[in-house]
Simulated scan of single mutants.
Amino acid sequence: MAQDFAKQFYSTKEWIRLRFNLIQERGPICQHCKKIMIDTSKLIGHHKVHLTPQNIHDVNITLNPEKIELICTECHSKEPGHFAGSRKHEVYIVYGAPCSGKTSMVNQLAVRGDLILDLDKIFECISGMPLYDKPDNLRFNVFALRDKIIDMVKTRYGKWHNAYIVGGYPAKVERERLAKELGAELIYCESTKEECYSHAISCDAKSTEWQQWIDKWWNAYEA
């Protein structure tokens, strides 16, 4: 699991851009098991040199392509220090624009036993459609499921380790209210509008439709 000092690093646009570029250059393939990853959000940028408070600001380690492997979440969980999670019931709200890399970042941070609430994944699960195809008639059901799980997180119901709430949350008042209710830490997934457009196209999303969602988020965003 990523330590607290590394969480902000994995949310920076420099890291998100580097991981995206590595996937484009090397292909969506796990360098350990050689599995082709159709869902590239499950492809982790793994540092060969373990990150520490002493080297986290050393770009020759953190942003050096030669010292980073692309591996799937299954292989990543087998790496030393990445299997067992802490049982602190800590909560993180990971927010940012559509196609900014929020899901990929959470996959980088989370370990087996953590709770991940991702609206995109709920849509995919109950509709049976591809990740970026969201039937509008299911929105009521999706939001009802999301709210039910958020209530569980709020009351710390269950035996999960830590929880990650993934969403857009462009309005500052809304995300700060939710963070207060859940006792959560906010983590912003840095990106630019142009990078979001590029990610949407690379993920084979409906680019015109998603460009509208991206534009809508940036118009509503409050830093």
Rank of each mutant, 00 (worst) to 15 (best):
E90V: 10
P80A: 04
E74Y: 15
E74P: 15
H76A: 08
E79D: 06
I71F: 02
V94H: 00
Q108H: 09
T73W: 04
E90T: 07
A97S: 06
R87W: 13
M105V: 04
G85D: 07
N107I: 00
C75G: 01
C99Y: 09
Y95F: 08
T73H: 10
P80D: 01
R87H: 15
E69C: 10
H76D: 09
V94Y: 06
P98V: 01
Y92W: 04
Y95T: 12
G81C: 09
E69A: 12
G101V: 08
A110W: 00
V94Q: 02
F83V: 06
N60F: 12
V111A: 07
E74M: 15
G96D: 00
S100V: 06
G101M: 05
K67Y: 14
G101R: 05
S104Q: 10
K102H: 09
S77N: 15
I93C: 05
P65D: 13
T103Y: 03
P80V: 04
K88H: 15
V106F: 05
G101A: 05
H82W: 08
R87N: 14
V91T: 02
A84K: 14
L63D: 09
S77H: 15
N60K: 11
N60G: 13
S86E: 13
L109S: 05
V94R: 07
A97D: 06
R87K: 14
V111N: 08
V106R: 02
T62A: 07
V59D: 14
R87D: 13
V106P: 07
R87M: 13
V111S: 07
A97Q: 00
F83D: 08
S100E: 08
V106G: 05
H89F: 03
E90D: 08
T103G: 04
E79L: 04
K67A: 11
N64G: 04
G101C: 04
R87Q: 15
T62G: 06
V111I: 10
S100I: 00
V94F: 07
N60M: 10
P98A: 03
G85A: 05
R87P: 12
A97L: 00
N107R: 01
L109K: 00
K67Q: 14
H89E: 03
S104K: 00
K67I: 13
T73A: 13
